[in-house]
């Protein structure tokens, strides 16, 4: 049998316990579902034509200057990879300094100061593949951020909040494309953001503008009249590492199975 005094005591206790809980933000399930498709009229996508790329690396140079990535630090938001397949089935790939200075030798950089010379007649296939952040539709780097410092903007670009990033490096480990690194000056996670300050003003990204051969293009996949969107919708394009389910939004023309 419970007395009135005891009942009041318990009631006060329960109310006291519940008070701080009401101060916590309750997550609204409707809010969680909202914007799965999103009302934004823009979804930035990128198109790379690997046939056109000559490996000059002017895109990397422009990117580093435009986005204030220390020029001599061996980190870069975009880089160009060289793939050389020989007739005896060997694959060589390199990207010295991220191709900041282009490819000005036929020797493949094997790392540790070793180089491989490949004769012209031994080459079966050889080509260049520019790489950058894929601005995935399901970005694994964003899922793992414990503090909400990296996120997907309504137009699909994944951004990093430098004031909020604690530098734990989870996102750098989570990216299957190796697109993230630590900024040597700010000590926060850093990545390509499609030159957000330029595309939001109607300009091209620095790499697209710097490319003399038109190998790189940026567009809006939600605009059916956008020339880049039209190519992605109607022509044969590939994406990198589709098996991860990240839905990357950088599309490639002329992708080969050797490209990872």
């Amino acid at each position: 049998m419970i007395t009135r005094r005891e009942l009041l005591k318990y009631a006060v206790g329960v109310a006291g316990l519940a008070a701080p809980l009401t101060a916590l933000e309750m997550i609204n399930p409707k809010k969680l579902l909202a914007g799965k498709s999103g009302p934004s009229k823009v979804r930035w996508v990128f198109l790379v034509d690997t046939y056109k790329c000559v490996g000059c690396g002017l895109c990397v140079k422009a990117c580093k200057n435009e986005n204030e990535i220390p020029y001599d630090a061996n980190v870069t938001r975009t880089w160009v990879e060289r793939y050389v397949l020989t007739k005896d089935g060997k694959l060589f790939a390199d990207t010295p300094k991220g191709a900041r200075d282009g490819f000005t030798t036929n020797k493949i950089d094997l790392g540790l100061g070793k180089y491989q010379d490949i004769k012209k007649e031994d080459i079966r296939k050889a080509f260049f593949v520019p790489k950058l952040c894929n601005q995935c539709e399901n970005p694994p780097c964003v899922q793992v951020c414990p503090v909400g410092a990296t996120y997907q903007a309504p137009d699909g670009v994944v951004l990093v909040d430098r004031t909020w990033c604690i530098g734990c490096g989870y996102c750098i480990m989570a990216c299957p494309y190796g697109a993230r690194f630590f900024h040597p000056k700010y000590h926060t996670a850093e990545k390509c953001n499609f030159c957000y300050h330029r595309i939001s003003k109607g300009m091209q990204t620095a790499c697209v503008e710097a490319c003399p051969f038109g190998a790189r293009r940026i567009g809006n996949i939600k605009d059916p009249n956008d020339p880049v969107a039209r190519i992605i919708m109607t022509e044969r394009v590939g994406i990198l590492k589709s098996e991860y389910g990240t839905k990357p939004q950088v599309y490639y023309i002329g992708l080969d199975e050797e490209v990872r």
């Binding site: 997550i27 999103g38 996120y151 939001s200």
Partner: peptide, 23 residues
Amino acid sequence: HERGYMYGWYREGNIEDWKKVQV
């Protein structure tokens, strides 16, 4: 924000911060 809790949990003012970077 728009992309839900998994992808859209952030400080909205940061989008404007990025737009202010000098061309």
